[in-house]
Simulated scan of single mutants.
Amino acid sequence: MSQSEPKPSVADALKHFYGVQVNAERRGWQKFCCPLHADSSPSASVNVEAGRWSCFVCNLSEDSYAIVMRELSCGFPEAKEFAHQQFRGSGEDLPRDVPGKPGRVLRSSPGPRGTGRKVRTGIRPFGSTWS
């Protein structure tokens, strides 16, 4: 894989792992229901231009590589290889850092902002319980 390959689209990663369909042609932020928890109203947003998605309930912000790393429990080199093989680098060439607020990660231990509760990742049918 060459250094100049474009970064895979966050829309492709969301569709692959969660079945979330977003309009890849639309500019700016698009709201949708977070696939990581049951939503009755949209709490997540995706910006295909910036290559990021965020959920305000999960306190999470990720790009396509971070989605792959979390879902496959792998490191960055493996996630990068998987993403480029699976999505064929279909995203736009993005700068290494997107201006704005830094991304956040899921908290699994008590911290200044968190309650310390674990957020279980993955997909579950709407209205089901974790058992």
Rank of each mutant, 00 (worst) to 15 (best):
S61H: 03
D93G: 08
E49Y: 02
R70T: 01
G116I: 05
W130Q: 10
A13H: 06
Y65V: 14
R88F: 01
R124A: 14
G28H: 10
D39F: 01
D12T: 14
A38P: 04
K101P: 05
G89D: 00
L60R: 05
A13M: 09
G51A: 02
G91L: 01
G122H: 07
G28F: 05
R120E: 09
P35Q: 09
Q86G: 00
G103C: 13
R52P: 01
S128M: 13
P8S: 14
G127T: 14
D12M: 12
P8C: 09
P8F: 08
A66S: 12
V119P: 01
P112V: 10
F17S: 01
C58T: 02
E5T: 13
A44M: 04
S43Q: 04
G127R: 15
W53P: 00
P77E: 13
P99M: 06
H37P: 01
S2R: 12
P6N: 15
I67T: 05
G91E: 00
L106A: 00
A13N: 06
N47M: 03
K31E: 10
R88E: 08
G103I: 05
R96M: 08
L72V: 07
A44D: 03
K118G: 06
M69K: 02
D63R: 03
R52T: 06
P42K: 05
Q3R: 11
P35H: 06
